[in-house]
Design a protein around this nucleic acid. Structure first.
Length: 457
RNA sequence: GUGGAUGUAGCUCAGUUGGUUAGAGCAUCAGAUUGUGGUUCUGAGGGUCGCCGGUUCGAACCCGGUCUUCCACCCCA
């Protein structure tokens, strides 16, 4: 009578095949992070709501999963507030913990809390799930993994450069063609400042972003409807239509931002980062200045990164930026950090779509021994142990099933070698080895099994 | 959170104006083949038609609700 079991909307189970592929992504990312000298940390799935609230804007606060207090939580609520439609007002009375929304804010909290034990600059990475009460869509889940790398306690633009190289290296290893979009909060501030619309920075950025989709005239109309002054819109034209190479874009911007100290500083930063990156030689990732990149505008103060897969329509698969004062909210001033976050689940979706996972991932076992019965199986055990000892993953089919079934199993698991040991082999102290890819079968001396497999694998 | 689609076997999908025991391909299992797979042939199992309710003599089909997945907006990995 039990109802069909299910899992919450936007969450997923991962079977063996998916886990092998996910681990391939995580291992690749972790390996690159380690190579650049970043150290791992983990933080709890839940944080105090006071840590989380107000860090992601109103929109972000709405997307936080809140955890109900233990005990008779309703008992402590003011009776006057307990009425229908008043959920928001009592939310904080019945909940003091929430699931983490990203890894950056918990990291900031971690740094402040452990500041006396940390040697700065602190380079850390963190690979854990985060939760958002968003409406799920393709590539958008309510539980998903982020892989964050940050360096905190250093203002050097070499850090931005390093992150760009990490991004390049990760996606090169995963064979995903990518475009790394770069922007800088200081340039955006400069633009708003120059046209006298500093308070409408977000509206302007959002509008510029739509140029491809809706065209210049529609963008200008949208700016007007947002209340941007007419002469400001005129000044904005060269920026909205900004195009060309990165150098050309920066040249145009220099002209427009000549009167803004902040804006010019942003340009200098951008040039410095691009210069360092150029010193590293050619990258597989295309780097492109994109002023419409407005992500995380709330706390980013310098460089802003976003990575898109070149060959799919998937949203961004990696993003981040520089934040000068993230730990300030938790009481540690003047500590600047910069970091990016890889979206493992979207990377998975992209790789699946583009068929980029190596076939070999699915082959967990290299050699399978067919089972002809108890006596024959026992005969195989020493050979199996020898193979395992030499690092070859080996299994013995557990039942004396029909050969067809055993061979089907080997095929299904993409096992390359099947070892056959029936009556004939046992009598002569031999083993027959069949290569499932070529169909060739060879009979060898029992003691030669490790050597034979090692040589032919 | 707003608006719009979707759901039939493990998977991909048929299913007539509402009319008896809801079908196909692939996959699975069994047999042809008691020591040899990926090809072939034969057969079998597997579905409360997402769930709940309503209309009707009768619902996979019509209506309402609900859940899931997906799309647009918002936002974002």
């Amino acid at each position: 009578m039990a109802a069909k079991p299910s899992i919450p909307k936007g969450t997923r189970d991962f079977g063996p095949e998916q886990m092998v592929r996910r681990n391939y992504i995580f291992d690749t990312i972790r390996q690159v992070f380690n190579r650049y000298g970043y150290q791992p940390i983990e933080t709890p799935a839940m944080e105090n709501l006071s840590t989380l609230l107000g860090k992601y804007g109103d929109e972000g606060d709405k997307l936080l999963f809140k955890i109900l207090n233990s005990g008779d939580f309703i008992d402590k609520v003011d009776a006057n507030k307990l009425k229908p439609g008043n959920s928001n007002a009592i939310a904080l009375d019945i909940s003091e913990k929430g699931l983490r929304y990203d890894l950056t804010v918990p990291f900031a909290r971690f740094v402040v809390q452990n500041q006396n034990d940390i040697t700065f600059p602190f380079k850390r990475y963190q690979i854990q799930p985060v939760w958002r009460a968003d409406r799920p869509q393709k590539g958008r889940y309510r539980e998903f993994y982020q892989c964050d790398v940050d360096v905190i306690g250093s203002n050097s633009l070499l850090n931005e450069t390093e992150l760009a190289l990490i991004i390049n290296e990760v996606f090169e290893k995963l064979k995903i063609r990518t475009i790394l979009k770069l922007n800088n909060r200081k340039i955006l501030s400069g633009i708003a400042e120059v046209i006298g619309e500093s308070q409408r920075l977000t509206d302007i950025t959002v509008a510029i972003d739509k140029i491809e989709k809706i065209g210049l005239e529609a963008v200008n109309n949208e700016l007007r409807s947002k209340g941007v002054a007419e002469d400001a819109i005129v000044k904005l034209q060269p920026i909205i239509t900004l195009s060309g190479t990165n150098t050309e874009k920066l040249d145009t911007l220099k002209g427009v931002l000549a009167m803004s100290e902040t804006g010019l500083r942003g340009i200098t930063e951008m040039e410095e980062i691009l210069g360092y990156i150029a010193e590293n030689g050619s990258l597989t990732t295309t780097i492109e200045i994109d002023l419409s990149l407005a992500r995380g505008l709330n706390y980013y103060t310098g460089a802003i990164f976003e990575v898109k897969a070149a060959d799919t329509e998937m949203g961004s698969i990696c993003g981040g930026g520089r934040y000068d004062d993230l730990t300030g909210i938790f009481g540690l001033k003047n500590v600047s950090g910069v970091g990016v976050s890889f979206g493992a689940d979207r990377i998975y979706d992209v790789m699946l779509q583009l068929n980029l996972f190596p076939e070999s991932l699915l082959a967990s076992t290299q050699v399978m021994f067919a089972n002809f019965g108890n006596k024959e199986a026992a005969y195989c055990l020493k050979a199996i142990r020898a193979l395992r000892d030499s690092g070859i993953s080996t299994e013995l089919y557990p039942d004396a099933a029909k050969m067809k079934k055993q061979f089907d199993y080997a095929n299904g698991h993409k096992i390359k070698f099947v070892v056959i040991a029936g009556d004939n082999e046992v009598k002569e102290n031999l083993l027959s080895v069949k290569n499932m890819e070529t169909g060739q079968q060879t009979t060898i001396a029992y003691s030669q099994i490790s050597n034979y497999i090692s040589e032919n694998i």
